[in-house]
């Protein structure tokens, strides 16, 4: 579809009033030694100063390799975890250090769907109880009673409402993920953080869940923070995409801008590593091969964190950390001393 309105274009470019605004977000996990007298010997810099914004009805994709801080970011945004620095603003309100009680009204607005549809559901609770939990916790009465509301939700996400009294183990992976979606949807949130919601599913089931999430977004004008390591899924579902590496956002842009005009070497490497399900296209693609693994977040490289694997690194890359700056189309930002376009997919 190429008929986007001016308003949509503003949203795509990540401008205008944001629903969620994250600034300098940081989460260090202390590493301690000693049994009686614990002393801190270092910190895992899981998330180290990131800026993100999400608008109403928009999907921001977050992609990056294992351990780069995606889940931690999601947990901070939903306030399941406490940031050690930075700020989180939702509809203009600063949530960063709100108490449990003050946080309660916002919990309705921001929900989360987890990667593992097996461990994220209590095996001893019925589906009805699981999906009804948000009503109970928030002390919300719904018209016609909770059961009716839950069954309507089950129907909406493609579950048989008659299975209200069944237990999670009686459902397949895809169905369990639908249960997670129904639970997240119960209180009509404005933002859902989806942490790898389809990574554990088979492709045919993955497509069902992706389609469901897209339908629900259209129907309820939901915003998603969609976390995944699969670049094809991210391209499909996102309006804008942020690429993370070792606790930092290294590039962020409108979806097609990112996939067609990426400027950061790490983004190039990621994109060129995806095996496309197209034998002929693969044969003609440029291959960038990184060597080695992601360094430890306990002791990240100085300057640019990608420099130990970057083929373009110069002295300055070890000395100065490249800031995330505007480059290319509106809303496109990259953190590299030597950004350039490159055709990789």
């Amino acid at each position: 579809m190429s008929t986007s309105t001016a308003a949509e274009q503003v949203i795509r470019a990540g401008q205008g009033e944001a629903l969620l605004e994250v600034k300098g977000l940081q989460r260090y996990f202390p590493v301690t030694r000693g049994i009686v007298f614990q002393r801190q010997v270092g910190a895992v810099k899981a998330v180290d100063g990131i800026d993100l914004s999400i608008h109403t009805g928009e999907t921001l994709g977050v992609v990056g390799e294992s351990g780069c801080g995606k889940t931690t970011t999601g947990r901070l945004v939903t306030r399941l975890d406490e940031p050690t620095g930075g700020s989180i603003t939702f509809e203009g309100e600063d949530l960063t250090h709100l108490s449990r009680a003050k946080m309660r009204p916002f919990r309705r607005e921001i929900q989360m769907i987890f990667q593992d549809p097996f461990s994220s559901l209590n095996p001893r609770q019925t589906i009805g109880t699981i999906i009804a939990a948000p009503f109970q916790i928030q002390k919300v009465d719904s018209e016609g009673g909770t059961k009716k509301a839950v069954q309507a939700l089950m129907e909406r996400v493609g579950l048989n409402p008659e299975h209200y009294n069944r237990y999670p183990h009686e459902f397949s992976g895809g169905q369990r993920q639908r249960i997670g979606v129904a639970r997240a949807l119960a209180l009509r949130p404005k933002l859902i953080v989806c942490d790898e919601p389809v990574s554990a599913l088979d492709v045919s089931i993955q497509a069902q869940i992706v389609n469901l999430l897209e339908d629900l977004q259209d129907e309820f004008n939901l915003a998603y923070l969609f976390i995944a390591h699969d670049l094809s899924v991210i391209r499909h579902i996102s309006d804008r995409v942020a690429v993370m590496y070792l606790g930092k956002v290294v590039e962020v842009a409108d979806r097609d801008e990112l996939y067609n005009h990426a400027r950061h070497p790490y983004t190039h490497a990621l994109l060129s590593a995806v095996p496309e399900a197209d034998p002929d296209a693969l044969a003609h693609r440029e291959r960038i091969r990184l060597t080695g693994d992601v360094p430890s977040p306990l002791n990240p490289p100085s300057g640019c964190r990608f420099r130990t694997r970057c083929w373009k690194a110069q002295d300055i890359c070890a000395e100065q950390e490249p800031p995330l700056v505007q480059i290319g189309a509106p809303g496109h930002q990259a953190a590299c001393h030597f950004p350039e376009e490159r055709d990789v997919i």
């Binding site: 045919s204 497509a207 389609n211 391209r235 399900a277």
Partner: peptide, 17 residues
Amino acid sequence: GSIPRVNRGGDHRLKSI
């Protein structure tokens, strides 16, 4: 039809089974 493609944009729905 189920798999999204990295080299293609577009706002179509996936063809799930």
